[in-house]
Design a protein around this nucleic acid. Structure first.
Lengths: 246, 246
DNA sequence: CGACCCCTTGAGGCTTCTCAAAATCCGTGG
DNA sequence: CCACGGATTTTGAGAAGCCTCAAGGGGTCG
């Protein structure tokens, strides 16, 4: 098996601190599932740095020293693992409110890359740990977050292990629509922050197969494609049926 | 796509409390990664029930009310998700010391089934939660466990999304050997507690493909198969090479 | 000894990948 | 405003890996 497709060689760029908010982002306060109370907010803010990241910027790579924890304020990030020959698998897409870099070992297990301009809160690992020791309630909530991550990963494992290409695409579109709706962003048509290559690497397919499935769904009049990165779901019921059709 | 293979229809069997330990199990104390201290041990034991389970017994199914948390004392358990048409994906195998049933929602996200005679500690959900509220240290350790689970799941996602059949088998054998060695059990030859069907459902393959890969590895003299459920790794380096060969 | 289950092996088909090229989009600059 | 170059997406043809279907082998247990 050769390389899945040409991988963009993007060297890690040192992150720039920035006091001016991303122009495309409205200011959002730090949230961990539910908004924090005053005490939590204060203690976390004390050790946090707000950072604004460019599109396609590597935040860290698999194997790097895990020295920071991040919380996304706005934007999107992909998590991925790669093999020696260049094959890449995206393990998840993150959005506002999501955490990354939370792991116990001293190196990151995945690489993180922004899909668009992204604003994050950055916590030094040790400082974050100390705040947690101080706030059992916060740790409690992080445990819930981690458990939700496990559930999401298990769903993805089912998708990758047992679903056909069309089922994967249908499942993906439904999931994206739900997540976008849950965040209160404009749904239908939804806008995908990722390219075909990133969708392919997320679903364990090739760019061509992703494109062909999109085209087929459009010809069946189940979705509309006003632009390459915009998807209008025209027939939700048929899309759901396709997401688990044998 | 038709059914992956005939699924054994196993109805949930009410679990039997048992005071006599499994005969194949040596007594083990409750552990959560590291052994618990006296206080933790006491508080957890107060709400725990020791249960002995038969092979191929369903502990709970996807969608069931999540009323208990379990910790495996000895034996093996598979976690799986299924689709309406019978396709099944095993999301993980658990062994002594592992937790299951830890999730935030009120229903289980996966089904759990014993692979062999298995002994577990069972905690009512509410009681477990209360003990946790009392012991921040314990919750801290559970967070580490959950984060390790996420890392394992990400590895499996890479395997399912991007690896060939032979790479999956090689990766699986290496992982099994490592886990068995880490538990201080006899390695080389290692004994697999799961059938070919379960290996297939774990690796996103069919029974036949799993069998063909095993045979091929044996003919290459990379592994030995003294019995169907025993694997001797003869050339670790070549097996590791195969686990990520293009 | 025979039934049953699990595993192995074989032949053929199908989904998806690979390789290739055309079409579309988009920012840049004349 | 339009031409140009690069990147992304789409489409096509053929190949390959894995699945499906089918049959045979080996072990266990009654």
């Amino acid at each position: 098996m050769a390389e899945i497709h040409a991988l963009p060689v993007r060297k890690p760029i040192p992150m720039q601190k920035s006091n001016d908010p991303c122009q495309t982002c409205t200011a959002r306060s730090l949230t961990i599932c539910a908004p924090l109370n005053t005490e939590e907010q204060a203690k976390l803010s004390a050790v946090a740095t707000s950072v604004c990241l460019q599109p396609h910027q590597m935040m860290f790579q698999e194997g790097d020293a895990a020295d920071h924890v991040y919380n996304i304020t706005c934007g999107s990030v992909s998590l991925s693992k790669s093999m020696a020959d260049g094959r890449r698998q995206i393990t998840g897409f993150l959005g506002p409110g999501d955490f990354l870099g939370l792991n116990t070992r001293d190196t990151y297990g995945v690489s993180a890359e922004t899909l668009m301009e992204t604003r994050v809160c950055r916590f030094p690992r040790q400082a974050f740990r100390k705040v947690l020791d101080d706030l059992p309630q916060l740790e409690h909530r992080l445990l819930a977050v981690a458990e939700a991550e496990v559930a999401t990963a298990q769903e993805q494992i089912l998708l990758l292990g047992r679903k056909t290409a069309m089922e994967r695409i249908a499942s993906f579109l439904i999931l994206q629509a739900e997540r976008i709706k849950a965040r209160g962003m404009p749904d239908n048509p939804i806008s995908l922050p990722m390219t075909r290559a990133e969708v392919a690497d997320y679903l364990g397919l090739t760019i061509e197969t992703v494109s062909r499935c999109f085209t087929k769904l459009r010809k069946l009049d189940i979705i509309g494609l006003p632009a390459a990165d915009r998807v209008q779901i025209k027939q939700t019921d048929r899309l759901k049926a396709l997401s688990q059709a044998a």
